[in-house]
Simulated assay, not measured.
Amino acid sequence: MIKSELILRIAAQNPHLYERDVEAVMNAILGRISDALVAGDRVELRGFGAFTVKARAARAGRNPKTGEAVPVGDKLVPAFKTGKTMQARLNAPEASALAEIEATAHRLLRRS
């Protein structure tokens, strides 16, 4: 799922909200998460996961075209670790996951 699809789904589930408002809220949330990571902070969404920044050490890379060694400097990279609730949902037996998907689809069809 991409951001625009997520915005459309949220707007469809909440007919009292305009799509442009959902997009503005989504951009505000993602922007705030980005700002916090740039500042070196950790962002934790209980039940979902935590975003952090990790440091990668400098290393020797390779130019894939020539095979020549190329120095790659140290850098900061974003990292995500799932929360316990999300991990449990991902590892739930397939039957219960399928039942949850079917229930969600049924609710969405009822609203239409």
Results as ranks from 00 to 15, higher is better:
F80P: 04
K84S: 14
K84R: 14
R46N: 04
D41G: 06
V77S: 07
A88Y: 02
P71G: 13
V72N: 10
D41I: 12
V72L: 12
T82S: 15
M86N: 03
P71A: 15
E68C: 07
A50N: 06
G67Q: 05
T52G: 08
G47R: 08
G67I: 04
A88T: 07
P64Q: 11
P64M: 06
T66H: 05
A57V: 05
Q87H: 12
G49I: 03
K65D: 13
K81E: 07
E68L: 13
E44R: 02
A58P: 03
Q87I: 05
A88D: 12
A79E: 03
G73K: 13
T82H: 11
A79P: 06
V53L: 07
A60R: 14
D41F: 11
G83R: 06
A79S: 13
A50I: 08
G61E: 00
A58Q: 09
P78F: 00
F80R: 01
P64C: 10
G47L: 05
G61A: 05
A88K: 08
G61N: 02
L45Y: 00
T82Y: 10
A50S: 15
F48N: 05
G49K: 00
Q87M: 11
R62L: 08
T82M: 12
T82N: 13
G61L: 00
A79W: 03
D41P: 03
G47Q: 09
A69G: 07
E44Q: 08
Q87E: 14
D41T: 10
A79L: 04
T82A: 15
K65N: 14
G83H: 05
R42G: 04
K81V: 02
M86E: 00
K84E: 14
V53A: 01
K81W: 00
A58G: 09
L45M: 07
D41C: 09
F48G: 09
T85D: 11
G83V: 02
R46A: 11
V70R: 08
G73I: 01
V53H: 07
Q87G: 09
E68W: 10
G47V: 02
G73M: 08
R42F: 07
A55W: 15
E68M: 13
A55V: 14
T85I: 15
L45T: 01
F51V: 00
D74P: 09
T85G: 06
L45Q: 02
N63H: 11
R62Q: 14
A88V: 04
A88P: 00
G49T: 04
A88Q: 13
R56G: 02
V70G: 10
G83E: 07
A69K: 12
N63A: 09
A88N: 08
A58F: 02
R42K: 14
L76T: 14
M86Y: 05
A69L: 08
K75V: 00
R59F: 04
L76N: 15
K75E: 11
K54M: 09
F48W: 02
R62S: 09
K54Q: 12
K75S: 12
